[in-house]
Simulated scan of single mutants.
Amino acid sequence: MFAKKINAAKAGIAALAIAGAFTATLPAAQAEGTVNIYSYRQPALIQPLLDAFTAKTGIKTEVLFLDKGLEDRIAAEGTNSPADVVLTVDIGRLINVKEKGVAQSVDDETVNAEIPAEFRDPEGQWFGVTTRGRVIYASKDRVEQDTITYEELADPKWKGKICMRSGQHNYNLALFASMIAHHGEEKTEEWMKGLKANLARKPDGGDRNQAQSIFAGECDLGIGNTYYVGLMMTNEKEPEQKDWAKAIKVLFPNSGDRGTHVNISGMAMAKNAPNRENALELMRFLASAEAQAIYAETNHEYPVLPGAKVSETVKSFGEIKPDSLPLADIAKYRKAASEMVDRVGLDDGPSS
């Protein structure tokens, strides 16, 4: 039987495992009426969406959750893979699904009509479903201004006042790639040197930790995704995170010109999907206004479909004007961005 919601790390699945290590335990293709999902997204984050899909279509869903090695597992399973649909976050991972040859092209009138061109692969091998802005967390107490640009992060007036996670993290690489796409490598590298000089400390932690540092007075600005603000605001298990969220305001960079860099959660149809028609039904559903509203509210994200409902929590962040540069164009510069982070020594911190 198809394994449900297995954590890859606990299952001991290596990112680059030998094909035989997987095929020995592969299940047979599922019967009609089922769609098999390989997901990098936590099961709890997608279950409301899948429940709504089953209620609407009668098609059951089976979820295999992995925290790493998803693309390699599908590749190793080959033509026997039960995977129908891949769900993941970040343009880098979606590009990786395509480049590793584990997705197939989908040219569907319904899906294409609902998802704007800048949020889908020109060859139909991946599609964005929701977006999250890469924004600036700013101290409510110590930062008076309510507007900012990414370019301004290199201004010496912020020296010792910026916190961020590793520059090599996918979320930051996507932002840096967008800077290269807009300004070219030479200007972006000078900007990155200025950003490094303004850091309060060596890049560390996750996005929420940057809000924590602002709350603690260690810095005034942090770089983070919008949805983490929602996660902090609604965190009942760790209520101290609500205090971190209350300490910050969300600034949407470049709202006055090109718009704020956004990344996506997305979907792709697996190359050898045994339940292709059911997979297509799921993709059509995920592209719909109904599904995007559910998905976006559950995860504190923005629907890609213009006019789809935005949750009250997300509305409280402020209005976002997304950068219209196609993500496929941004993704081309991810390797250059990664090399630049190392060349500049961004992750070494401000004093290096």
Rank of each mutant, 00 (worst) to 15 (best):
M1K: 12
M1Q: 07
A3E: 15
K5L: 10
G12N: 09
A31C: 01
N36W: 02
S39N: 01
R41E: 11
Q42V: 14
L50W: 13
A52I: 01
F53Y: 09
I59P: 01
K60M: 02
L66Q: 00
L70W: 03
A75P: 00
E77R: 04
T79L: 10
P82C: 13
V86E: 11
I91T: 12
R93W: 13
N96Y: 10
K98I: 08
V111C: 01
I115C: 03
I115K: 04
G124H: 00
Q125M: 14
F127Q: 04
G128A: 05
V129R: 09
R132S: 12
D141Q: 12
V143K: 11
E144R: 00
E144D: 15
Q145K: 08
E152I: 15
K157S: 10
K157I: 11
L175A: 11
A177G: 07
S178N: 09
S178L: 04
M179T: 02
H183R: 05
H183F: 14
G184F: 06
W191C: 04
G194L: 05
A197H: 08
L199M: 13
R201I: 02
N209Q: 15
Q212T: 05
G222R: 03
L231A: 06
L231P: 01
M232W: 06
M233S: 06
E240F: 15
Q241C: 07
A247V: 08
F252N: 05
S255W: 01
H261W: 02
H261R: 01
M269P: 13
N275S: 06
L286H: 11
I294Q: 01
E301D: 14
Y302N: 07
A308M: 07
V310M: 09
I320R: 07
P322L: 12
P322E: 14
S324I: 06
P326T: 00
R334V: 14
E339W: 01
V341Y: 05
